[in-house]
Design a protein around this nucleic acid. Structure first.
Lengths: 145, 145
DNA sequence: CTTGCATAGTTAGAGAGCCTAACTAAATAC
DNA sequence: GTATTTAGTTAGGCTCTCTAACTATGCAAG
């Protein structure tokens, strides 16, 4: 292939990504909400009435896993299950509670955080390189046949 | 684009990284050895006699966590503790066993894997973008004040 | 309308991976 | 010779993820 050796690229990318993920998790714990929870609250905020399976598909996580997340968020009082809008009794419609909206807003403020500071500390060139690579990184995990 | 907003860059990078990490972990499980274990075996192979604390520092995880990893790798028969080379009775010197070397070799072969295929499926430009961003991503998690 | 399959979601059980707090034991410093 | 530092372990807990097996609803075809 004309491209750089994909094997070595993979071998270099793998540890870098996992190490960064480790730090992000640590940081999230410091802030008090996990990345997954934050992400889910954001999605439910944007798409009230969404169901468990749809969420699972969006995040590419198995349904029982997502079911547990939803249960936890509900127990925390951040989301609630509404009767299915479309009449399908199997589906649940998820929506933020007032507390959930408040949590989302307050977290958004307090979430400036570690990653932003680290990014800000980089050379502008390095930051641009990351920005340029983001679509490609996202494409790696895109669903496909 | 000269100085992309670091906050939005952080908000975009975070989910991308965590999602990719999720996939990598899943894939590692399919292959039969976790990324952490593979990484540790590689490091110990390159630096026999290394200690638990050094490993923990290199991977930027806490010592008890690393202690547990080491214990597990030892139980699997992949590494062994040698009497400290330098006479310091507190330190352990870790080294691969014959089985560990064999495992490393066999895994290296069977590890062509998901990530490499995904990278290979990208446009060359996208791959180049990731390669260009790698140093910056690594720098994000570099130790420093 | 019943039989049978598909879909939405849950429960149960497991395992990886990370953490902090508190400990032992050896080295070092005063 | 006590006091501090360093290497490593133990204990206990949390989060995130998975698979397998289940319930209950919807739907379609005979």
């Amino acid at each position: 292939m004309p491209a750089p050796d994909t094997t070595s690229l993979a071998e270099a990318l793998r540890p870098a990504v996992l190490r960064l993920a480790r730090h992000l998790r640590r940081e999230a714990q410091r802030v008090g909400i996990s990345e997954v929870d934050w992400q889910l609250l954001s999605i439910i905020y944007r798409r009230p009435g969404i169901g468990v399976s749809e969420l699972a598909d969006m995040e590419m996580i198995r349904r029982p896993t997502m079911s547990a997340h939803v249960k936890r968020l509900e127990a925390a009082g951040w989301i609630e299950r509404q009767p299915s809008a479309c009449g399908d009794q199997r589906r649940v419609g998820l929506a933020l509670t007032a507390a959930g909206r408040a949590a989302l807003a307050s977290i958004r403020d307090s979430r400036t955080g570690w990653l932003r500071d680290r990014l800000a500390a980089l050379d502008p060139d390095a930051r641009d390189a990351i920005a340029a690579a983001l679509p490609a990184i996202a494409a790696l995990v895109e669903v496909q046949p």
